[in-house]
Amino acid sequence: MTATASSSTVPVEEWVRSFTDASDNDPEIQAHGKYFTCGYLLDMENHHFVVRMTSGRVAEVAVDPGPLDVGYQFAIRASAETWRGFATEIPAPMYHGIWAATFRRDMKLEGDVLVLMQNLRCITRQIELLRTVRVPV
């Protein structure tokens, strides 16, 4: 771990709870997530999470799993600084989405990107939820 979390950082357990609640109660994801079933890694530098979605519901968020603990299909990786940029009500330019941050910041989309594309509508919305639930890094 290279960066130190600021004092205002959301505790990890609390973040997992609020992210799950926000996603499971989000009208858009619930209206369009019937086939939103996949697993993906959110690498936030200081912490990483594997989010497992089943039919639009958060089935599990694994916190800092070991190297071979939990499988996933694709990964969204960025520095803690970039993720903090996502975690504001109105993100600054280039922190306002995974495409923007991938083209212009240090974000990387890795693994089976086809699965990301198949679920792009719901993933896009889910990442935008970070504007209200913030990030734990």
Binding site: I90, P91, P93, H96, G97, I98, W99, A100, V113, L114, M117, Q118, L120, R121, T124, R131
Partner: peptide, 25 residues
């Protein structure tokens, strides 16, 4: 190729793929 990939919903990939091109404001 993603804009026309037959294994994904091309309509949604195009639409959500350009979503970040718009400002949150």
């Amino acid at each position: 190729d993603w804009w026309q990939h037959p294994h994904a919903n091309a309509a949604q990939v195009c639409a959500s793929g350009v979503w970040d091109l718009m400002a949150p404001q």
